[in-house]
């Protein structure tokens, strides 16, 4: 098994799994019907991408697991998602800001992955990047609309950005897994995406009249599994409950 590729695929699949789950928590509770539908669409795309990334991860691992087993039967230390995506939804502003910060990275990263030397990775990236392009267009528009809306919406978006910003840097921190795959031309160097990312989100924040925080401090530990936030365990409690309570059943 290619251990590095397996780890990297878990990172991609866990990002979309955990974020898709968070976004799906909004279903039936959004501020307006159109947003309810749009959030469900985003969550559906992310769940679909999860099936592809974790499906390939399971194939690479070759241990008889599948995407569902990886999603439903790993405990917290097995998860490799960015800390950003496991943070609770907060208000609608925080949810959309988190979505935008993720989408902006996702669309750049997937663009590079489309040129991966591994055709399986390139193929999934090509499919997912179409969805990601739409997601970032929508989340950027909403960040602008709410940032440059009323005084209250502006204040809430600025607060959301300040809360979430210390989790952004983890996207660009590389490790041995990345290094090995970068050398093989499978994935881009995470650090190499930062400049484009900052330029893009900076433009959107300027239009949204939001101030981009200057600090480069970042929380980390999600993508390498060193440690997650306390929030992830609670998510797994509901997400994995049926599979854990009734092992071996077919649903």
């Amino acid at each position: 098994m290619d251990k590095d590729l397996f780890q990297y695929l878990l990172r991609l699949g866990d990002n979309t799994l955990v974020l898709g789950h968070r976004v799906s928590e909004w279903c039936g509770h959004a501020p307006v019907l159109e947003e309810d539908i749009a959030l469900a669409n985003t969550a559906l795309d992310l769940i679909g991408q999860t099936q592809l990334w974790l499906g390939l991860a399971a194939e690479v691992e070759g241990a008889g697991r599948d995407a569902d087993k990886l999603a439903m039967l790993r405990d917290i230390w097995g998860f490799r998602n960015l800390l950003l995506v496991e943070l609770p939804n907060g208000d609608f502003g925080r949810t959309l800001m988190r979505q935008f910060l993720f989408d902006a990275w996702q669309v750049i990263n997937l663009g590079r992955l489309m040129k991966s030397s591994d055709p399986r990775v390139a193929e999934i990236a090509a499919k997912a990047s179409k969805e990601a392009a739409y997601h970032v267009e929508r989340s950027a528009d909403t960040v602008v609309g709410l940032g440059d809306g009323t005084a209250e919406s502006h204040a809430r978006m600025q607060a959301a950005l300040e809360y979430l910003w210390p989790y952004v840097g983890e996207m660009f921190v590389g490790d041995d897994v990345d290094a090995a795959l970068v050398a093989a031309g499978v994935v881009p160097d995470p650090a190499s995406l930062r400049e484009e990312y900052d330029a893009f989100v900076g433009r959107i924040f300027a239009t949204a009249t939001l101030e981009m925080p200057e600090s480069r401090f970042t929380h980390k530990g999600g993508k390498n599994g060193a440690f997650h936030t306390e929030h992830l365990g609670h998510m797994l409690c509901s997400m994995q409950w049926l599979q854990r309570a009734y092992p071996g059943a077919s649903w």
């Binding site: 799994l17 789950h21 799906s24 928590e25 279903c27 039936g28 509770h29 019907l33 309810d36 539908i37 469900a40 669409n41 969550a43 559906l44 769940i47 679909g48 999860t50 099936q51 974790l54 995407a67 569902d68 999603a71 439903m72 998510m235 509901s238 997400m239 409950w241 049926l242 599979q243 059943a249 649903w251």
Partner: peptide, 29 residues
């Protein structure tokens, strides 16, 4: 949407979750 939305986060597989979410989204539509 609410009684079915109640189970989206506890759906037992990825496919079931996607189908349920799509269904509840249809109701909103």
């Amino acid at each position: 949407q609410l009684p079915e939305g109640n189970w989206i986060t506890r759906a037992p597989t990825l496919e079931r979750k996607a189908i349920l979410l799509a269904k509840v989204q249809d109701e909103a539509g």
